[in-house]
Design a protein around this nucleic acid. Structure first.
Length: 484
RNA sequence: UCCCCUGUAGCUCAGCUGGUAGAGCGGGUGACUGUUAAUCACCAUGUCGUUGGUUCGAGUCCAACCGGGGGAGCCA
């Protein structure tokens, strides 16, 4: 049968009985045997539920074959769909013929017909996609990913591919992964006339005597890193094409071991010209609500699974967020609300400190009872490129906070005045020359512009209710672990 | 990076104040059966994370190291 014309299990389950013979490939989740009948549950990844395959053993020579079919085996079943007399499914496949494509020895196959801990499944990340939970996570991830593009494409945003390798530490913050083709054991040194190879290994390694590494002889002729954000590059194209977005991998070498950090993650960063903070907030809110509506509509089966098995009540809470207007609150108002809350916080709220996780939780879950957008933070705790307010103390920043998760989006209106941006760069001791091209954007046809960043895995974690961010990406990259 | 918890069978765990290792699930075998986490019976599970120490004796106590988890910070 032609590969592309084959009907997959998700569609078969939604269809009715038919006399037409079909061919269904998939992996066996369980096998149950009766005297005359063998039941296979077949899954092909197209849906959470599998197709029940019925093999009448009487009058067939399939018995020896059936005995070799164990959990995890790859098979192709041929037969036709009938109405199922049993509970649990509306249709089932009456199997006329069966091919065992790939055996799966039960004694050594790590996945059993039982619940496994996510910790264990992380150790077999190459196989965990075959479980209900990870199948559902990846389908939801795919759905959200498509919805991201749909949302921006529908609104005339241009998908911009920003570089993975960058020359500078874009935001002056965060640990970076260095990219180099130099011999890390023995790099060329400045002030050394001899080529690297001629230097004695011991002398080179002693470090103290050697000069700084000569990155002019590195691949790009300068020191390079994996990107921590595409924002600055996106600004360049937003001030040319009006509205763009990035959706690509991002890298942070932070030594953070938490349920919400990855060393390699995907980030979405829209950037809009002729757009102030209000427009930015409106886009962020519409974006989040669109994504939630879309996944609830397109993945009801998987979302019901998460609601039942992973995070009870999640569907209702996401629906609530999708239908609720986000509350707007200035940082100053937020601090004041926290101070008046009567709650005892581990970190006492006070104007000037960043909002802690416990503060975000209070604001969303108790104070507002829903999503909150906090704006106008003290400039000292925000990035150099954010637009200064008239008060000289705060910047046009915004964080979107949601119940259960906290910050899901961080963004700002960008500083579009050349002198103000230069002043910020100087004040923070950054190098104007590094940002020469970025400053050009303020020299030539500068406009008010805004944007934000959304960590894709944090979104998937929020939508699925999965506790650990390492379980919402196929192969997680985190401190001390780059397996698979 | 800091704080807390944890490492025993393929998986999830029990193992009291030190006395020489167990349960459920999974696996194998058999029975029964239009089953659906199928059911019932029987069988086999092991360098107790590693190294060192205390002790007549260590899964159990001590130390160091390694791995895993949670929280905090940093952030998306």
């Amino acid at each position: 049968m032609n590969y592309l014309s084959r009907t997959r299990i998700a569609a078969l389950l939604a269809s009715g009985p038919s006399a037409e013979e079909i061919e269904v490939p998939g992996w066996v989740r369980t096998r149950r045997d009766s005297k005359n009948v063998c039941f296979l549950e077949l899954n092909d990844g197209s849906s959470l539920n599998g197709l029940q395959v019925i093999i009448n053993k009487e009058g067939t020579d399939l018995q020896p074959l059936i005995e070799r079919i164990q959990t995890g085996a790859a098979v192709i079943a041929r037969g036709h769909l009938v109405e199922s007399p049993g509970a649990g499914q509306s249709v089932e496949l009456v199997c006329r013929d069966l091919t065992l494509v790939g055996e799966c020895p039960a004694e050594s196959y790590p996945l059993q017909k039982k619940r496994h801990s996510f910790e264990f499944l992380r150790e077999i990340a190459h196989l965990r996609g075959r479980t209900n939970t990870f199948g559902a996570v990846m389908r939801v991830r795919n759905c959200l990913s498509r919805a991201v593009h749909q949302f921006y494409q529908e609104r005339g945003f241009l998908y911009l591919h920003t570089p993975i390798i960058t020359a500078g530490d874009a935001e002056g913050a965060g640990a970076l992964f260095q990219v180099t083709t130099l011999d890390v054991e023995n790099p060329p040194r400045l002030g050394s006339a001899t080529p690297a190879g001629a230097t004695s290994g011991d002398a080179a390694r002693s470090g103290a005597a050697a000069g700084p590494v000569d990155y002019g002889r590195d691949f790009f002729g300068s020191r390079t890193f994996l990107t921590v954000s595409g924002q600055l590059n996106a600004e360049a194209y937003a001030t040319a094409l009006d509205r763009v977005y990035t959706f690509g991998p991002t890298f942070r070498a932070e030594n953070s071991n938490t349920t919400r950090h990855l060393a390699e993650f995907w980030m979405i960063e829209p950037e809009m010209a002729f757009c102030d903070l209000e427009g930015n907030m409106e886009l962020a809110e519409q974006f989040v609500r669109y994504l939630l509506r879309d996944v609830l509509e397109k993945c009801p089966e998987d979302m019901t699974f998460f609601d039942k098995r992973i995070e009870p009540g999640i569907v209702e809470s996401l629906r609530g967020v999708a239908e609720t207007q986000f509350r707007h609150l200035s940082y100053t108002e937020a601090i004041s609300a926290l101070e008046k809350s009567g709650e005892t916080f581990e970190y006492a709220p006070s104007w000037g400190i960043d909002l802690q996780t416990e503060h975000e939780k209070y604001l969303t879950e108790k104070y507002a009872g829903g999503p909150v957008i906090v704006t106008d933070y003290p400039r000292e705790i925000k990035a150099f490129y954010m637009k200064h307010n008239e008060d000289g103390k705060t910047v046009r920043a915004m964080d979107v906070l949601v119940p259960r998760l906290g910050e899901i989006i961080g963004g700002s209106q960008r500083e579009d005045r050349l002198d103000a941006l230069e002043a910020s760069i100087d004040r923070l001791g950054l190098d104007r020359e590094t940002y020469r091209w970025y400053l050009d954007l303020r020299r030539f046809g500068s406009v008010p512009h805004s944007g934000f960043g959304l960590g894709f895995e944090r979104l998937v974690r929020y939508v699925t209710g999965m506790q650990n961010i390492r379980d919402v990406i196929p192969f997680p990259r985190a401190v001390g672990n780059a397996d698979f």
